[in-house]
């Protein structure tokens, strides 16, 4: 049962080479201390992403997937490990305008709630215009054209461009947030549960948009989600995290048809479908002793010990 695969092969941090990986993450670790106890949020995480690739980070609350997303964009500083974008390290501290702009160009993020990430007092068009200006596009007419082009790419028009965030629907706001992120032409786009709050009919529109963006731009996507079906639709690889550790990292198709880690199998069995037996899932969860005592709080877990049987 405990034939957990070794986590993804640790990539050797290599100097920049054309055709090399877009994003290389190696040995990433982040701990927090709360009230004297050390909590390992992310432990020994390694993966790489090629141009046009899409990696799904899958896990439940407390798995470390959001901490990972935040480290990728520089909102958290890892304790150990390295993040390379196109061969260049993401600086742990950014000083000065040039360095900040360079990091913005490397990685952009779209959060779950576009209400909180867009400025509520300025229109969508002005928000994107500001991003373009910040990144050195001085010509007003050129910027206006680019704003229109970016919004058209996500299926928004002049009406939405002139609107404030609160005047748009949830799906439109999330598309505006994606357009804002794309304005920088980043190498990597991180989406942290970016479609989770959307109604299913609207979510489908945004998912189709993401697959178009992948096809058309060659941008690398890191797609953080708890929803395996959505990850299957957007990504070609998936990495399953549990309490900060990598449980399994495989192409999505293999992960779903032949999951190797018992925790991945449990996650898959938990997805409601016809003939679903939630009783059996509860029994399996206890039998596996994967989640002892249903301690969903991120402060409860301690670091697992052995890397091949990551759950102590």
């Amino acid at each position: 049962m405990n034939t957990a695969p070794a986590p993804a092969p640790v990539p050797t941090p290599a100097p920049a080479s054309p055709g090399g990986p877009l994003l290389q993450v190696s040995g990433l670790r982040k701990t927090y201390s709360t009230g004297g106890t050390q909590v390992v949020a992310v432990d020994d995480l390694s993966f790489s992403l090629h141009p046009g690739g899409a990696l799904g980070l899958v896990g439940e609350s407390g798995s470390g997937k959001t901490t990972t997303a935040r480290m990728l964009v520089g909102l958290e500083r890892p304790d150990h490990g390295q993040i390379l974008v196109q061969g260049a390290p993401i600086a742990a501290t950014v000083r000065g305008r040039a360095a900040r702009l360079a990091r913005a160009k490397a990685v952009q993020i779209v959060f779950q709630d576009p209400y909180l990430s867009l400025d509520g007092r300025i229109s969508i068009g002005t928000t994107i215009d500001g991003v373009l200006r910040l990144h050195g596009c001085g010509d007003r007419a050129a910027r206006a054209g680019r704003v229109r082009e970016l919004l058209a790419q996500v299926g928004l028009g002049d009406r939405e461009s002139a609107a404030l965030p609160r005047q748009l629907s949830g799906g439109q706001r999330q598309r505006a947030a994606i357009a804002r992120a794309l304005a920088v032409e980043p190498a990597v786009l991180v989406l942290d549960e970016a479609v989770s709050a959307l109604d299913v009919s609207v979510q489908a529109q945004v998912l189709n948009l993401l697959s178009d963006i992948r096809r058309d731009t060659g941008i690398g996507l890191v797609f953080v989600s708890h929803d395996l079906a959505v990850v299957r639709y957007v990504c070609d690889e998936a990495l399953v995290m549990y309490r900060g550790r990598t449980m399994e990292h495989q192409p999505v198709a293999d992960l779903l048809t032949a999951p190797r880690h018992p925790y991945t199998r449990l996650l898959l069995a938990s997805v409601p479908r016809p003939g679903w037996d939630p009783d059996a899932i509860g029994r399996r969860r206890r039998a596996l002793d994967v989640l002892p005592g249903d301690t969903g709080s991120p402060t409860a877990p301690t670091a697992p010990t052995a890397p091949t049987a990551p759950i102590a």
Binding site: S169, G171, Q172, D199, V200, S201, V202, Q203, A204, Q205, L207, N208, S211, L228, A229, V230, R232, Y233, L256, T257, L268, V271, R273
Partner: peptide
């Protein structure tokens, strides 16, 4: 039917999703 067409499937063939156009 639109709700079902908007839900990505966990198994079986994976075609392009067919969202319901517009908003509720």
């Amino acid at each position: 039917a639109g709700l079902l067409g908007s839900t990505p499937p966990l198994d079986g063939p994976l075609g392009r999703l067919t969202p319901i156009r517009g908003v509720p």
